[in-house]
Simulated assay, not measured.
Amino acid sequence: MNKLNVALIFGGKSGEHEVSLLSTASIYKHINKEKYNVFTIGITKDGKWMYYEGTEENIRNGKWVNLANLNVEINLVPMGNKEVGLLFEDGHIEKLDVLFPVLHGPYGEDGTIQGLFEISQIPYVGCGVLASSVGMDKLICKKVFTQLGLPQVNYTDTNRWVFNKESEKELDSIEDELNYPIFVKPANLGSSVGISKANDRKELLEGINEALKYDSRIVLEQGIDAREIEVAVLGNEDVKASIAGEIKPAKDFYDYEDKYINGTSTYEIPANIDSKSMEDIRNMAVKAFKGIDGKGLSRVDFFIDKKSGEIFINEINTLPGFTNISMYPKMWEATGLDYADLIDKLIDLALDSRK
């Protein structure tokens, strides 16, 4: 059987560049190289595309930038007589059967690069343009969830132009709508980058200023004393949800440092919740995924209020972390689908979506 040519595309311009390197190194290590010819295409922090051929360790530590082969031409846009694929120095072209983006955050998870993939007409892993852009934008996604009838904590929003013009008035308005603690989040980012928890007006101002470094639009959410529950979803038309897992943050919330650096938070899979809550959460995860027209994969995050037991959907991540400690593959592993088979399934779904 001929091997499929699969290109892992990693790095990128977003604040989650380093997360992408960790996820890609893990996928590269576990992908079945007897089934696939694996090509690796890195995108630098300033947006340069480079072909890299080497070890996963040099992907992980960022040294791939200095080891990239700049003589290999990457062409994903059909132009004139040029074939789409990788043009090597000896003149031969490697056509790509599947593109596997491992790009988190803006320019990778927000529909922009998915638009390029659509133009290339090469099947690709994950959600399409619409689902990616909606899933990435926390504010728009919340509005879609409202239309779907999915329960959420109270929230409001602001933006750079309004806040810079009349910050005191905006702070008053936020305090009128929400009680402390308040979570402050950039509208378009993931992996908890730029997110903070404000317990008073001073911290709220600091949190908004920090979030504005990453995006011009800010989401503010009512903080509740809650358990953090996550579910992995997989599929195109026939969508399945994994068993749910619970994050037990070492700090006030599960932040970037804990997700990808020190790993001091713990998790429990399956989550210690009653069977009805487990079923409700899995069903809501599938509903949210289908509601944004998701394809391939996503991780859907929930809160369970510790006092009332109410379940609230938090957000959907259309290209979740894929490191060896990431919840998405861990939850599928606990459900009966191991890491390598999960990669196979995602590639199959990418091919199926183009039929």
Rank of each mutant, 00 (worst) to 15 (best):
A211W: 12
G294Q: 02
L76W: 09
P249I: 01
A226H: 00
T156S: 14
S133D: 14
L70D: 12
Q152L: 15
A211L: 08
I247C: 10
S192V: 11
E237C: 12
A241P: 01
D258I: 10
N32Q: 11
L4V: 00
V219N: 09
E53P: 06
H17G: 14
N179E: 13
A271V: 10
D97I: 00
E56C: 09
L4F: 01
I261C: 06
K202E: 10
Y36H: 01
K35Y: 08
Y52E: 10
D90C: 01
Y52Q: 02
N314D: 05
N71I: 06
E246K: 05
F88P: 08
M1D: 15
N69H: 14
T318G: 00
L351P: 07
K197A: 14
R227I: 07
F183H: 09
G15W: 00
L319R: 04
A350M: 11
L337I: 09
M278D: 07
L87D: 07
G128Y: 05
L220R: 07
I313W: 06
A232R: 09
F183V: 06
V38H: 02
V162H: 08
V162L: 12
V239T: 13
L70Y: 15
G115L: 06
F253T: 05
K48E: 13
A232L: 05
G12R: 09
N81C: 12
K45I: 05
I325R: 03
D172F: 07
S308N: 12
V6M: 06
V233T: 07
G85Q: 09
P320Q: 02
D215G: 03
G207D: 01
D157L: 15
F10V: 11
R217C: 01
S133Q: 10
N58W: 05
N75L: 14
M331L: 14
R299P: 04
V125W: 01
K290F: 04
A25R: 12
P101L: 03
Y28A: 08
K35M: 12
K143G: 05
C141Y: 03
I261D: 14
I325Q: 04
K307H: 07
E89T: 15
K307Y: 09
I208F: 05
K345R: 14
G115N: 00
L21F: 06
S326N: 08
L148S: 04
K330L: 14
L130V: 11
I218F: 04
E34M: 07
L116E: 00
E57S: 10
P101Y: 01
N69P: 08
F183C: 04
K276W: 04
K197M: 14
N188F: 00
S173C: 15
K307C: 08
F322K: 00
